[in-house]
């Protein structure tokens, strides 16, 4: 092992990573075909629908050729895909604005909300996961298990409703809709975001905490842990130096799932607090059947999901010393 140069030790893992990147692009291509088929080809005629019942056949034909609906399906698909790839996914049917402009206006809001929730929820999730893993089977673990089990199954609108009732109706501490202030002071900023972040955090803490617990417990049952315990390693050192590095794979995977939930899954929370993010934009696109906007949002969410999973896979591969022998 010591004979292998550092470069050759990394060859195996890097090849694996390259393969994963290729696979992610293939999957994204297939996903784009699925989304376009469902939303672009299957549902009736967009031109007919836009003009309504009273339109003459000539008007419909004119709009069809203007929208490019008279071209063959494959040509339309590749034209659409090219637009997505170069960052110009067409014009919104409802707002009559380029989809790219609408999305780039909303994107920062979604990133801020997802970022703040991550900062708030991930440390707590680690705390919950580690605490219940080290007290496995005892009262603390059992209580945390029931709590997180219930939190996972709570509908977001119930959590949001309770939060609004407690913090804005009874205590009058926080506003019940989230208005992003212009040039806010820190206090204004935190007050505006406190409630959506809390509500989103509940789900993330429960889900991620449970998965971290499971990942740590899977390691605790292995012989090297017993060895370390017999050597007299202290518990914090055991968890942070011995167990966590070995549990990195499943933990980063769980984090990728949680982050992708924050990016595209905040649909209910954004709607309840009237927060102008991407998820509520997608809901509006569904309500108004604005297909170009809907397709672009869906592709953005799927791409983010695949990207986060890819990052998690890469970290897991590079952190696994067993793959590093070359």
């Amino acid at each position: 092992m010591s004979a292998a140069s550092p470069a050759s030790r990394w060859r195996g893992p890097l090849q694996l990573v390259a393969k994963r990147i290729g696979l992610a692009f293939v999957t994204l291509g297939l996903v784009s075909a699925v989304i376009f088929t469902i939303s672009g080809l299957l549902p009736g005629d967009a031109a007919q629908e836009l003009l309504g019942q009273g339109a003459t056949p000539e008007q419909i034909a004119a709009l069809r050729s203007e929208m490019g609906l008279d071209r063959p399906a494959l040509v339309r698909y590749f034209g659409w895909l090219r637009g997505i790839v170069i960052g110009d996914p067409g014009k919104s049917l409802v707002a009559n604005m380029p989809v790219a402009d609408i999305i780039s206006e909303r994107l920062p809001n979604t990133l801020v909300l997802a970022g703040l929730t991550t900062l708030f929820a991930v440390p707590i999730a680690f705390l919950v996961g580690i605490w219940s893993a080290v007290t496995r089977g005892h009262a603390a673990d059992r209580a945390l298990n029931i709590m997180t089990l219930a939190m996972v199954a709570l509908p977001e609108f119930l959590v949001a409703t309770i939060a609004v009732l407690v913090f804005s109706v009874k205590l009058l501490w926080l506003p019940s809709i989230t208005i992003v202030p212009q040039d806010p002071t820190l206090v204004e900023f935190l007050r505006a975001y406190a409630m959506p972040v809390m509500v989103l955090g509940v789900g993330v803490i429960a889900q991620l905490g449970r998965m971290i617990r499971a990942a740590i417990i899977a390691e605790l049952d292995r012989p090297y842990v017993e060895m370390a315990v017999l050597k007299g390693v202290s518990q914090p050192r055991l968890i942070f130096r011995h167990v966590l590095p070995n549990a990195v794979g499943p933990i980063v995977n769980a984090m990728a799932l949680s982050l992708s939930y924050l990016f595209g899954g905040a649909i209910i929370v954004e709607t309840i607090f009237s927060y102008p993010g991407l998820a509520s934009l997608m809901v509006n696109a569904v309500t108004s059947r604005d297909m170009p906007l809907l397709q672009a949002c869906a592709m953005l969410f799927c791409a983010t999901y695949l990207f986060l999973v890819l990052i998690a896979d890469t970290v897991a591969i590079l952190a696994n010393p067993r793959l590093r022998q070359g």
């Binding site: 989304i35 299957l42 899954g265």
Partner: peptide, 20 residues
């Protein structure tokens, strides 16, 4: 199925509802 599972379920459901 690997392809379909890469579409988050809420997003998939929204696209289907918009179409049908």
């Amino acid at each position: 199925m690997d392809t379909l599972i890469s579409i988050p379920s809420k997003i998939f459901a929204l696209v289907l509802v918009a179409a049908f």
